[in-house]
Amino acid sequence: MSTTSPTSPTRTSNRTWWIVGTIGVAAMTALAIWFGIAATSGKVHWVNTGFDVISDEQIDIRFDLRRDSSQAVVCDLHALDEHHGRVGTGQVTVPPTDESPSRHIEPLRTASRAVSGYVDTCTYADTN
């Protein structure tokens, strides 16, 4: 007599669901990674690195850009007063450069004394 037992239907069913589940999770993970890379590839990325209040009429805004260095970039700058009201807005065009990331300091004129300044958005100049 043989002592081996045939595989039970319940055991086979559980194994099938584990395989299907593992394949599903792997496919969804790959899809999420693909969407993440596709959403950020070729875009302008900026990091606000600080500001210096120069006077009641000017603030210097510091930021770093990571982008296709062969293209010009347009950035929107904003300055806020102590009540979070906007006291300065402007645009700056950053020309193509040999390196990315690159560091920038841009002056912004203000209507009254600003207490903070930042880059709101940056886009490639040809998309404006």
Rank of each mutant, 00 (worst) to 15 (best):
M1R: 13
T3F: 15
T4F: 14
P6L: 10
T7I: 14
T7S: 13
S8L: 11
S8A: 10
P9N: 05
T10A: 14
T10I: 14
R11A: 15
S13T: 12
R15I: 12
R15G: 06
W17A: 11
W17Y: 11
W17T: 11
W18D: 14
W18P: 02
G21L: 04
T22R: 09
I23R: 03
I23W: 02
G24N: 07
A27L: 15
A27F: 07
T29F: 09
A30I: 09
L31G: 12
A32Q: 06
W34S: 10
W34G: 10
F35T: 09
G36T: 02
G36N: 08
G36Y: 01
I37C: 05
A39K: 09
A39G: 13
T40A: 10
S41C: 05
S41R: 10
S41D: 10
G42P: 06
G42N: 00
G42L: 05
K43P: 02
W46L: 08
W46Y: 12
W46P: 01
N48S: 00
T49Q: 08
G50C: 01
D52M: 02
D52S: 09
D52V: 00
S55T: 04
D56M: 04
I59Y: 03
D60F: 04
I61V: 08
I61G: 04
F63G: 04
D64I: 05
L65A: 01
R66V: 07
R67P: 02
D68I: 06
S69N: 15
S70Q: 12
Q71P: 03
Q71T: 06
A72P: 05
A72W: 03
V73N: 05
V73H: 03
V74A: 03
C75A: 07
C75P: 05
D76I: 12
L77Y: 01
L77T: 04
H78E: 15
H78M: 15
H78L: 15
A79V: 06
L80E: 11
D81Y: 14
H83R: 12
G85F: 14
G85N: 15
V87W: 04
G88D: 02
G88K: 05
G88M: 04
T89M: 12
Q91A: 07
V92D: 08
T93G: 00
T93V: 13
V94Y: 06
V94T: 08
P96A: 09
P96C: 00
T97M: 13
T97R: 14
D98E: 13
E99Q: 13
P101L: 03
P101V: 03
S102Y: 00
R103Q: 15
I105H: 04
E106Y: 06
E106S: 10
L108Q: 05
L108C: 03
R109V: 13
T110F: 05
A111E: 13
A114Q: 00
V115H: 00
S116V: 07
S116M: 01
S116F: 05
G117E: 01
G117A: 02
G117N: 04
V119L: 02
V119N: 07
V119P: 02
C122W: 07
T123N: 12
T123C: 06
Y124C: 00
Y124V: 01
Y124M: 00
A125I: 06
A125Q: 14
A125H: 09
D126N: 09
T127K: 09
N128S: 11
N128Y: 15
